[in-house]
């Protein structure tokens, strides 16, 4: 019997390495410890052996069982490892490229827009939007632009046919529809729709009847800013815009307000910046936006008392800022959408 046990263990031990799969293992295991297994058969003999031999025999059987259990565990672990290896496949070569051919990215104009709006957001400015398809009153009259102003000419501004109806840009009276030439029209719609204090930035698309070249585009993007409150001053204008410039162009950027003219601000300025580290444009005064105090006439046009309220406004070209920040020399790149361009700003 002792011999029998030794044979069972030794046969099991030598057969185990050949077992490759779980079914084989089950067959193997059943052949030993199943109801008809060889080990089970030996154990059944226990009843027939003399009482005084039982303790010694029992010990032998237990030892043999433990050896078999160890063989089973080892075999099973080996099979599980093999199964896992089969499931995982060959080890990877991490130096191979990913087969996924896409990488998403925001357009540089969107990135700059969100950066600028984010900077003003921290100063309490929230985003307002207005229609691209505007009326002449909102785009010009309300902004104190006289009827004979050159910008209102058919040669400079794109108009819609006279019978156009546009639900999303309610008219003031019976004025014409046009594609807005600036985002300043959002100032008007905002001031008419809510009470001051107002602090908004209005990013959006604008249109000029221009021939496309390296610096001109049939449409372009602006960010308009408006702050209406009691006692808004030139100092506020300078402080807000200086803070913006430092965030975008760094602490070394200098600014200056150069007197200029816009019908809807008085006084009006162009803001110039001078930056030490901007490639070929370093250390030169560069125009970046128009700004000023909101003209009292504009406040009156939207029913605000110019003695009670005052405001500041500014407007910058997103393309312009993006071109300065990234050193882009041709505005047409923004509209061609060549991946070799877009990927540079991903």
């Amino acid at each position: 019997m002792q011999q029998q046990l030794a044979n069972i263990v030794s046969e099991a031990s030598s057969a185990a390495p050949a077992i490759k799969t779980r079914p084989e293992f089950e067959v193997f295991k059943a052949g030993l410890v199943g109801s008809k297994g060889s080990m089970t058969a030996v154990m059944k003999l226990m009843g027939s052996i003399p009482k005084e031999e039982k303790p010694a025999m029992g010990k032998l059987i237990n030892e043999a069982k433990q050896k078999l259990e160890a063989i089973f565990a080892e075999t099973l672990a080996r099979i599980e490892d093999a199964e896992l290896a089969a499931k995982l496949g060959e080890p990877i070569d991490p130096s191979l490229p990913s087969p996924d051919d896409f990488a998403g990215m925001r357009h540089p104009l969107s990135q700059i827009r969100e950066e600028v709006c984010g900077i003003f957001h921290r100063l309490g400015f929230t985003i307002a939007e207005g229609p691209e398809l505007e009326t002449e009153w909102f785009c010009f009259d309300a902004l104190n632009t006289p009827a004979n102003h050159p910008a209102r000419d058919m040669q400079d501004t794109l108009f819609l046919p006279a019978d156009t109806k546009a639900t999303d840009a309610p008219k003031k009276a019976d004025e014409a529809y046009l594609l807005r030439s600036h985002t300043s029209s959002v100032q008007i719609r905002t001031m008419l729709s809510r009470k001051p204090p107002i602090r908004i930035v209005a990013p959006g698309r604008c249109f000029r009847r221009d021939t496309v070249d390296a610096t001109h585009s049939a449409n372009f993007h602006q960010i308009e800013g408006l702050w209406i409150d009691k006692n808004v001053t030139l100092k506020d204008l300078k402080s807000v815009l200086d803070s913006f410039v430092r965030e975008v162009f760094g602490n070394a950027a200098e600014t200056r307000l150069r007197p200029s003219f816009f019908p809807f601000t008085e006084p009006s300025f162009e803001m110039d910046i001078r930056v030490p580290n901007m490639g070929a444009l370093s250390n030169r005064w560069l125009e970046i936006m128009g700004c000023g105090l909101v003209d009292p006439k504009v406040l009156e046009n939207v029913g605000l008392d110019a003695n009670e309220w005052s405001g500041l406004a500014f407007g910058m070209g997103i393309e312009r800022i993006a071109m300065l920040v990234h050193g882009i020399d041709d505005i047409r790149h923004f509209y061609a959408n060549d991946l070799r361009f877009l990927r540079q700003f991903a």
């Binding site: 896409f102 998403g104 969107s110 985003i127 939007e129 990013p203 049939a218 877009l342």
Partner: peptide, 29 residues
């Protein structure tokens, strides 16, 4: 708060850029 349309377009843009889409800007005309 930011205009709802602005909040929505920001979400949509981030969703698509996150799915591997490259954002384009084309002319309106």
């Amino acid at each position: 708060a930011d205009a709802q349309s602005a909040q929505f377009t920001r979400k949509a843009a981030n969703l698509l850029a996150g799915r591997g889409f490259a954002e384009c800007v084309h002319y309106t005309l």
